[in-house]
């Protein structure tokens, strides 16, 4: 993976365009191959059993197809966008709650985003990903638990045996590091 328009992130973005414009099943199959097993893992770590997670993953991936016109690559990476769909489905199905969403931002009428903005956003997300990969193991693990384990900070404390204050400061430290890399 490199910074060029040929990087993996830009490849996923172009796949999304092919799905949106051409209903391209090959592009969908490739996105599915990478993301469906990860969405399923996310849902299982959030407490779904294998069959519910499977069903839910299929819903998420079908939503990706149907909502492909809503994806804005100048605003999110494909991974981020899929994460938000999966997160909302998790709340819906596992927590049996509605997910209140903020007011929709006023978009231009079907305007294609500026290519330079798209590249910049996708590169920033790559830098964020690299920073995450380089976090010290203990910080990375806590951030993952906060997202994937469906645990509150105090529940993480109970699970890891670390005092709550330590957890909060480690998460803060990790976020600080991520921000520093992003500057």
């Amino acid at each position: 993976m490199n910074d060029s328009p040929g990087s993996a992130r830009m490849l996923w973005v172009r796949h999304m365009t092919r799905i949106r414009d051409d209903k391209d099943r090959q592009a969908f199959a490739e996105l599915f191959g990478h993301f469906a097993p990860r969405v399923k893992g996310f849902l299982m770590r959030s407490g779904a059993d294998a069959s519910l997670a499977e069903e839910c993953t299929q819903d998420v991936m079908a939503a990706l197809w149907h909502k492909s016109h809503q994806f804005d690559p100048a605003r999110a990476s494909v991974a981020t966008w899929i994460f938000t769909i999966a997160r909302n489905r998790k709340i819906d199905l596992l927590r049996r709650q509605r997910r209140p969403e903020p007011e929709d931002l006023a978009w231009g009428p079907e305007a294609e985003p500026d290519q330079e903005d798209v590249l910049t956003l996708q590169q920033e997300s790559k830098i964020l990903g690299a920073a995450l990969a380089e976090l010290p193991e203990n910080q990375r693990e806590l951030i993952e638990k906060a997202y994937f384990g469906d645990l509150t900070h105090s529940e993480i404390a109970a699970e890891t045996g670390l005092p709550l204050g330590t957890i909060k400061s480690r998460i803060r430290l990790a976020l600080e590091r991520l921000r520093h890399v992003m500057k």
Binding site: G41, A76, T80, Y147
Partner: peptide
């Protein structure tokens, strides 16, 4: 959300159904 996306992207793949 972007952080969540990166965590998802870097997470391990779980086995999915054959006909998924």
């Amino acid at each position: 959300d972007a952080l969540g996306g990166e965590i998802l992207d870097q997470s391990d793949a779980t086995e999915i159904g054959t006909h998924s």
